[in-house]
């Protein structure tokens, strides 16, 4: 998978989080996976269709998710990830992927985004693509966000 298709998603994670005042966002190393084993509590998945077809999964702990929701709600204390909080995590994934689709369209690729799904569970095994998935950990001041990108180009 060409890095030019991956970078827009990573840049979007950074820029969307920065819009909410999250700092110290650092990109970790890339790894390739056939199957995702996720030890995080929450995974938000958004699909893309068009000239690029695939899924992007954003996995995080509940604590990190609460921190992101709090940042999205202007610093409001979020003690539990209730229905509104879960909806906000879906919106976060939607914003990141939507922003990346704009960056891709600026490069001449027509891409549309599908509705987000939020999946909760322990010891999760995922397959999000029929081809290899690229995993990148994003370290932030709110904790780690594991980004898995599976694109069929």
């Amino acid at each position: 998978m060409d890095v030019k298709y991956i970078l827009p998603f990573l840049e979007s994670v950074k820029s969307v989080l920065e819009q909410f005042g999250v700092e110290d966002i650092k990109r970790g190393q890339l790894a390739k996976n056939d199957i995702m084993h996720v030890d995080q509590d929450i995974t938000a998945v958004v699909g893309v269709v068009g000239q690029i077809r695939g899924n992007i999964a954003y996995s995080m702990s509940e604590e990190t998710a609460r921190g992101i929701v709090s940042a999205m709600m202007m610093g409001m204390l979020v003690e539990q990830l209730d229905e509104i909080g879960r909806s906000a995590i879906g919106e976060f994934a939607n914003m990141v992927t939507g922003n990346a689709s704009i960056l891709l369209s600026n490069s001449g690729l027509e891409v549309d985004v599908t509705p987000p799904s939020i999946i909760f569970g322990k010891d999760m095994y995922f397959i999000i693509s029929t081809v290899q998935t690229i995993k990148i950990d994003m370290e932030t001041s709110l904790g780690k966000i594991e980004v898995n990108i599976g694109l069929e180009i």
Binding site: A57, G121, F126, E152
Partner: peptide
Amino acid sequence: LRLAPPIVFTGQDVIISIPKI
């Protein structure tokens, strides 16, 4: 309509939430 590729998963105590739909 155009399809995104399928995702599939399994785990413990799995809950699927589709906001606002």
